[in-house]
């Protein structure tokens, strides 16, 4: 597989899997405004996923739909963070914030990519990610610095998700080649900005970042996804698996 295709799968699968996860809230959120906000965020992410998977598909001779609906878990290249279950609203918004704080600087850096296709998708997506980060940050602050109940849930959410927050910054051979070709930034170069964003929000939220420096990995190269991804795919891919090629 060529490098741009592999990279586009990493970007597209993050957006697709998180978009699907967030869409699971549709009709179930704690307030109407939150329901609408979550649905809109999911919609943006699915739209971004389509652009990235179309780019991957141009290199692989497959459509975005084929890539989304007929690959198996080990072919997915999303971060472990985005496949983690929603659990409660606090976990959902903490996961969103930890991802948005990484996603926006990544998209901003990609806007200057040597690949015009990568740059145009990133530029389009960055505008939407700006709104996502605004909202997820504000929600983390409001709930962390909220009631004893919301504070305790946000603390639990951080404990659950923190070990999945570091994978995004671990560079591998593909990243090295992408950096050399000017296509994408070294993920480790995005870490400082992410830490600044997260540290300042957690301070306002009266939450402490867990101290552990251990991070699970295996999502962005597909070598070891968590068991949750398979469960997402059974639901997301059901129709194309049961009725291959179905269209309407």
């Amino acid at each position: 597989m060529d490098d741009i295709a592999e990279f586009a799968l990493r970007m597209g699968d993050n957006a697709l899997v998180l978009g699907h996860r967030v869409s699971e809230w549709c009709g179930h959120a704690p307030a109407l405004e939150e329901d609408i906000a979550l649905a809109n965020t999911a919609l943006d992410l699915i739209g971004q996923a389509r652009m990235w998977l179309e780019l991957a598909g141009e290199h692989l001779g497959r459509t975005a739909d084929q890539l989304a609906f007929t690959r198996d878990a080990w072919d997915f290249r999303n971060l472990l963070l985005v496949e983690q279950p929603n659990r409660d609203f606090g976990v959902t918004m903490t996961r969103q914030f930890l991802f948005d704080a990484f996603h926006l600087p990544l998209l901003t850096a990609l806007s200057g990519s040597s690949s015009p296709r990568v740059a145009e998708i990133a530029l389009k997506s960055a505008k939407e990610a700006t709104y996502h980060l605004d909202r997820s940050r504000a929600t983390v602050v409001a709930l962390g610095d909220g009631t004893p109940e919301s504070h305790a849930r946000m603390r639990d959410a951080l404990d659950i998700l923190w070990p999945y927050s570091g994978e995004a910054f671990l560079a591998d051979d593909l990243d090295t080649r992408l950096v050399e070709a000017g296509i994408a930034p070294d993920p480790s170069s995005l870490r400082a900005e992410w830490e600044r964003t997260v540290t300042s929000a957690l301070a306002e939220a009266t939450l402490d970042a867990p101290g552990s420096g251990f991070f699970h990995q295996g999502g962005r190269d597909g070598s070891r996804h968590t068991e949750h991804l398979g469960h997402i795919l059974t639901e997301m891919q059901f129709l194309q698996r049961a009725y291959p090629g179905a269209a309407w």
Binding site: E33, I36, A37, T41, L43
Partner: peptide, 13 residues
């Protein structure tokens, strides 16, 4: 402002 998101992706409430 009520919410940064509204009835369509382009609108806020």
């Amino acid at each position: 402002r009520v919410s940064q998101f509204g009835s369509t992706p382009c609108k806020a409430q």
